[in-house]
Computed example of a mutant assay.
Amino acid sequence: MTPDSIRSAAASLLTAYQTGKPIDPLSDTYPHATVSDAYRMQLEQVRAWTQRGEVVVGHKVGLVSAAIRRQMRVAEPDYGHLTSRMIHPEHEPIPSAAFLQPRVEPELAFVLKAPLRGPHVTVADAARAVEFVLPALEIVDSRIADWRITIVDTIADNASSGGFVLGSTPVRLDDADLRLAGCVLTVNGAVAETGAGAAVLGSPLNALAWLANTLAPMGIALEPGHIVLSGSMTRTVPIAAGDCVVAATNGFGSVTAVLSE
């Protein structure tokens, strides 16, 4: 795709944020767009956000489990950027009007104490860079109508990001088993999904290493203090205004998100 086409596609996504109206799939409008093109669209939006004062606070890994890839009809993981606009305090009402088609995912979030720069980052390297882990809820969203996404659509749309909530129980890596961490996701008190850390590429640490190595060709390193959402342990669950969502993960505590009426 030409630079003008990349900018035009990014502009259409930015307009969807402003108007609250989803757009047709970019994979229909630009049928020859590649994954590389999609990440360039993503970066155009990140530049627009930072120019208006937002700060990149980390990254998210998406599409990590086989179940969620089947659900979204895509075949590979992806990543997006997390900015200061996306952070929501636990238990405080999150404005539902900020989202178009929200869904929720239970995750584990890494907070880094050291930089991670690929290529060739191993799981051991990833573990050494982690200061602590927090339970997290990611509110995913799509600016693409009816979630009719391909891998190009979701990558271009910042990996279908929306917002996230972090729990308040930091856990050191050697105090819990990431793979065996069982998770129960409830919406308004009813169990919606169950899962475990092993659903995240075998271990959330694998997702962290994958991210560092995938960012390397773009010259991007993970920085100390950054947050990395490692990916959903379950399928995504649609949510609506007024919903109260809780993710309880064995060994890591719980985290609650409330969508305002």
Rank of each mutant, 00 (worst) to 15 (best):
M1I: 14
M1A: 13
T2I: 09
I6E: 07
A10N: 10
A11F: 13
L13T: 06
L14Q: 11
A16N: 10
Y17H: 10
T19P: 15
T19C: 14
K21E: 15
K21D: 15
I23H: 15
P25D: 15
L26E: 15
S27N: 06
S27K: 09
T34Y: 12
T34H: 09
V35D: 11
S36K: 12
D37V: 07
D37H: 08
A38Y: 07
L43E: 12
V46T: 10
R47N: 08
A48V: 09
A48M: 06
A48G: 04
W49Q: 05
R52F: 01
V56E: 10
K60N: 07
L63A: 11
L63Y: 11
V64L: 05
A66F: 00
A66E: 04
R70S: 13
M72T: 10
D78L: 11
H81S: 09
L82W: 01
T83E: 02
S84N: 06
S84I: 02
R85Q: 08
P89C: 12
P93I: 01
A97T: 14
A98T: 12
F99A: 09
L100I: 15
Q101C: 10
V104N: 07
E105S: 02
P106I: 01
L108P: 04
A109G: 03
V111F: 13
L112P: 11
P115A: 00
P115C: 04
R117F: 12
G118F: 03
P119D: 05
P119F: 09
A124Y: 00
D125Q: 05
E131L: 07
E131T: 03
F132Q: 11
L134E: 02
L134G: 08
L134M: 11
P135C: 03
I139D: 00
V140P: 03
R143T: 02
I144G: 09
W147S: 09
W147G: 14
R148I: 13
T154G: 10
I155N: 04
A156C: 12
A156I: 11
D157M: 06
D157T: 05
S161V: 01
G162P: 01
G162I: 08
V165D: 02
V165H: 06
L166C: 08
S168M: 10
V171Q: 01
V171C: 02
L173G: 03
A181M: 02
A181C: 08
G182R: 07
V187W: 04
V187R: 03
V187F: 02
N188L: 05
N188H: 05
G189H: 06
A190C: 08
V191Q: 13
V191E: 15
G195A: 06
G195W: 02
A196K: 02
A198N: 09
A198G: 06
A199N: 10
L201H: 10
G202P: 13
N206Q: 11
L208P: 14
A209S: 10
W210Q: 06
W210M: 04
L211H: 14
L211F: 14
N213H: 02
T214G: 01
L215I: 07
A216H: 13
P217W: 00
P217R: 00
G219P: 01
I220P: 13
A221F: 10
A221L: 07
L222A: 06
L222H: 11
V228P: 08
L229Q: 13
T234F: 03
R235P: 05
T236F: 11
A240H: 12
D243H: 14
V245A: 00
A248Y: 09
T249E: 03
N250W: 01
G251C: 03
V255A: 06
V258D: 00
S260W: 09
